[in-house]
Computed example of a mutant assay.
Amino acid sequence: MQYKGVLTKMQTEIGNPIQYYLVFENDFIHMNQLLNKTLTINFLGYQCLNCELHKKIYRQGFCYDCFYEIPQAADWIMRPELSKAHLGIEDRDLAYEEKVQLKPHIVYLANSSNVKVGVTRKTQVPTRWIDQGAHEAIEIVEVPNRYLAGITELALKEYVADKTNWRAMLKNEIKDENLLEWRDTLKQYIPEEARAYFIENNTETTIHFPVLQYPTKLKTLNLTKTPEYQGVLKGIKGQYLLFEDNTVFNVRSNEGSVVSITVKG
């Protein structure tokens, strides 16, 4: 079987384990069904996820021009405390910014290699946790806009990490943490404007990933340096494909790459 298309982040479905789908324009692959099969990935070029021109990808699946023009790539995406739609102030496109920023947002704790704090729209729970490879997570506050979530995350970053150790996550070098205790400890550091939105009575979410074998050493697949790669798929975690030879491939960081995937076995 051969598939061809533009890479976008894998879509997921809750299950035990999580179900993964790689979706192309005219086809999709249920990735869980490819475990223990040999995949050949060929890099064919680029296609911007916004303008769809065959231009080199700069960041987040967008070409250079689109990255610096479209609202989907503005600074407030990565730094939610910069959100201003609640003040009626436009960054790149106020209508888009109001649609995204003025929706319920969650500040959460997730444990993928270490406990970290993060922000996501409520509609992206638990997808965001899955994409980060977290095996457990818990919500801390639910606020009505992105700005409040951003300033809460900024305050809590003083006391807990905001980055995942992706190497430890992929090797499954993890330890269980009591996220309820973490949540209660961090409550005192929530900014006054967001304190009323603290979530008192909730439980941890546990996530199981479809992995048959974890890598022991990590070799990152770079499509521009290795335009053709072949390996046996042994697992999927976060947005990574894990192969038998310790090669790992980050699908999300390769959004906008045009590839063909051939399946054997």
Score class of each variant (00 low, 15 high):
Tyr3Leu: 06
Thr8Gly: 11
Thr8Asn: 15
Thr8His: 15
Thr12Val: 15
Thr12Glu: 02
Thr12Asp: 03
Gly15Leu: 12
Pro17His: 06
Ile18Phe: 04
Gln19Ala: 11
Asn26Trp: 04
Leu35Ile: 09
Asn36Glu: 15
Asn36Ile: 00
Thr40Ile: 13
Phe43Gln: 01
Tyr46Val: 00
Ile57Leu: 02
Ile57Glu: 04
Phe62Cys: 03
Phe62Met: 12
Cys63Pro: 07
Ala73Phe: 02
Ala73Gln: 10
Pro80Thr: 11
Glu81Thr: 01
His86Tyr: 11
Gly88Pro: 03
Gly88Thr: 07
Arg92Gln: 06
Leu94Asp: 02
Glu97Met: 10
Glu98His: 00
Val100Cys: 00
His105Val: 02
Val107Ile: 15
Asn111Arg: 07
Ser113Lys: 03
Val115Trp: 06
Val117Asp: 11
Lys122Ala: 13
Gln124Pro: 00
Val125Gly: 01
Ile130Thr: 03
Asp131Ser: 10
Ile151Tyr: 05
Leu156Pro: 05
Tyr159Ser: 06
Tyr159Leu: 04
Lys163Gln: 13
Trp166Ser: 04
Ala168Pro: 01
Met169Asp: 05
Leu170Ile: 14
Asn172Tyr: 14
Asn172Arg: 12
Glu177Lys: 12
Thr185Gly: 00
Glu192Ala: 06
Arg195Cys: 01
Arg195Gln: 15
Ala196Asp: 08
Tyr197Ser: 02
Ile199Gly: 04
Ile199Ala: 03
Asn201Phe: 02
His208Arg: 14
Tyr214Glu: 10
Lys217Val: 11
Lys217His: 10
Leu218Phe: 05
Asn222Lys: 13
Thr224Gly: 00
Pro227Lys: 09
Tyr229Ile: 06
Gly235Val: 04
Leu241Pro: 09
Phe243Ser: 05
Val251His: 02
Glu255Arg: 14
Ser257Pro: 00
Thr262Asp: 13
Thr262His: 11
Val263Met: 04
